[in-house]
Amino acid sequence: MSDAGPGRPLAHWQHRLAERGVDRQLWLLVPALIFVVALFLYPFFYGLTLSFQPTNGGPFSDYARFFSDAYERGTIWITLRIALPAALLNVLAAVPIAYRMRGRFRGKRLVTTLLVVPITLGTVLTAQGLLNFLGPTGWFNRILLATSLVDEPVRLTHNYWGVFFSLVITGFPFAFLLVLSYLSGIDPTLERAAATLGADWRRRFTQITLPLLMPGLATTFCLTFVLAFSVFPSAVLVGNPAGETRVISLAAYQAAYEQYDYPYASAIAMIMGFVELVIIAVVLAARSRFYTGSTGGKG
């Protein structure tokens, strides 16, 4: 450091900063940063401050109002009761299918396309299809009636099950694609090694693949859960929006656009976000107990 040339200290600092990841490439992050601030941070803090400025009462009175009203409070439970099982089912159903499809085989592209098509349909089309298929006069019930398996149509729409099915149909492709990519990130030689050590396929799966896949499953669960938790269109279209599928986003919608009480709607939105964060925190805490490093696959 005895070199006192004018360029040296600057170069030295640039080097030190670069080691900590501060260099010119940071400029590449600017568009993303603007995007995050404009579309996420600003509305979030706007909503947060709004929620503490109720039309009447102290700063927390809108939160108190939500939790003191059983009808309102119940929406949390209603939403969780739909979103948690739907997310869980999506992940659990995706695992065996993705496991079977991780290798290369003839027609893989076709099968993958078929499994992923529901993403492109959108919620409204899915709801339409569900009503046609599972509704009281839909094919499903007609078949059941024709084969005399039931005496009167099974109610599968305009209630809990309608929303549940709709969430599974739209959430499964996401879960499947994610799990498939996590699985192909696990080096297939590991299972071959386990086989030469005497593990049958069941133990190869439970001892090697599953533990390595768990972190990926946790992440997948979080993503499908968040998608399911903010369920709105299907709760209205194939659910029972006045009763058992009055989900929390519906409560927020009614506060904002039926009662025009924006501060209260903001408070509900904040509560909704908080519940999601709690669930995600629990799942991620559990995730960190698994091995999360490199699994040597092709990524």
């Binding site: 590991l190 386990a194 030469t196 049958d200």
Partner: peptide
């Protein structure tokens, strides 16, 4: 026989150690 019933040990070129 499948590999798990042959009982041969194998050392892989990439080691294939179980990372977890």
């Amino acid at each position: 026989l499948p590999p798990e019933r042959r009982g041969f040990g194998m050392v892989f070129q990439s080691y294939a150690l179980f990372p977890h």
